[in-house]
Deep mutational scan, measured.
Amino acid sequence: MAAGGDHGSPDSYRSPLASRYASPEMCFVFSDRYKFRTWRQLWLWLAEAEQTLGLPITDEQIQEMKSNLENIDFKMAAEEEKRLRHDVMAHVHTFGHCCPKAAGIIHLGATSCYVGDNTDLIILRNALDLLLPKLARVISRLADFAKERASLPTLGFTHFQPAQLTTVGKRCCLWIQDLCMDLQNLKRVRDDLRFRGVKGTTGTQASFLQLFEGDDHKVEQLDKMVTEKAGFKRAFIITGQTYTRKVDIEVLSVLASLGASVHKICTDIRLLANLKEMEEPFEKQQIGSSAMPYKRNPMRSERCCSLARHLMTLVMDPLQTASVQWFERTLDDSANRRICLAEAFLTADTILNTLQNISEGLVVYPKVIERRIRQELPFMATENIIMAMVKAGGSRQDCHEKIRVLSQQAASVVKQEGGDNDLIERIQVDAYFSPIHSQLDHLLDPSSFTGRASQQVQRFLEEEVYPLLKPYESVMKVKAELCL
Rank of each mutant, 00 (worst) to 15 (best):
A3L: 11
G5Y: 11
R14L: 15
R20T: 14
Y21Q: 08
F28W: 06
V29C: 09
V29N: 15
Q41A: 06
Q41L: 07
W43D: 07
W45A: 11
A47Q: 02
E48R: 14
E48G: 10
A49I: 10
L53E: 03
I62W: 09
I62D: 01
M65D: 00
S67F: 00
N68V: 04
L69K: 08
E70I: 10
E70G: 14
A78T: 12
E81P: 08
L84H: 09
H86A: 03
D87P: 10
A90M: 11
H91W: 01
H93D: 07
H93G: 11
F95L: 09
H97P: 00
C98T: 06
I105F: 13
A110Y: 06
T111M: 15
S112Q: 03
V115G: 06
V115Y: 09
D117I: 12
L121V: 08
L124I: 10
P133N: 10
P133E: 07
L135D: 00
L135F: 14
L135N: 05
A136L: 07
R137T: 12
L142R: 07
A143G: 11
F145R: 13
A146Q: 13
R149G: 06
A150H: 05
A150M: 00
G156Y: 08
P162G: 01
A163D: 03
L165M: 00
T167C: 06
V168F: 06
V168P: 12
G169D: 10
I176Q: 07
C180W: 02
M181N: 12
M181S: 07
K187S: 11
T201A: 01
T202A: 13
F208P: 13
L209K: 01
L211K: 02
H217W: 04
Q221R: 08
D223N: 00
K224M: 08
T227N: 01
E228S: 11
K229D: 05
K233P: 15
K233L: 10
F236G: 07
I237L: 03
I237Q: 07
T239V: 12
Y243K: 15
T244G: 08
D248K: 15
I249W: 14
E250K: 14
G259Y: 14
V262K: 12
H263L: 00
H263N: 12
H263Q: 13
I265C: 05
C266S: 14
R270N: 08
L271N: 05
L272E: 02
A273S: 07
E280Y: 00
E280D: 09
F282H: 07
G288N: 02
S289W: 00
S289M: 02
E302A: 12
H310S: 06
H310D: 05
M312D: 15
L314V: 04
M316S: 05
P318E: 12
T321H: 12
Q325N: 14
W326S: 02
E328A: 09
D333S: 09
C340M: 13
L346R: 11
L352G: 08
I358R: 09
I358L: 14
I358F: 15
E360M: 15
K367L: 13
K367R: 12
I369E: 12
L377W: 02
P378D: 14
F379L: 11
F379R: 11
M380S: 09
T382V: 09
I386P: 07
A388E: 10
K391R: 15
E401H: 10
V405P: 02
Q409M: 03
V414C: 15
L423T: 05
I424S: 13
E425W: 09
R426A: 15
I427E: 15
Y432S: 14
S434E: 08
P435R: 04
Q439C: 15
H442K: 01
S447Y: 08
S448F: 14
S448K: 15
G451H: 03
R452I: 13
S454D: 06
S454M: 14
Q455P: 14
Q455A: 00
V457S: 04
Q458W: 11
L461W: 08
E463F: 05
E463N: 05
Y466C: 02
P467D: 01
Y472P: 08
V475G: 09
V475M: 10
M476Y: 14
M476V: 13
K477F: 01
L482M: 11
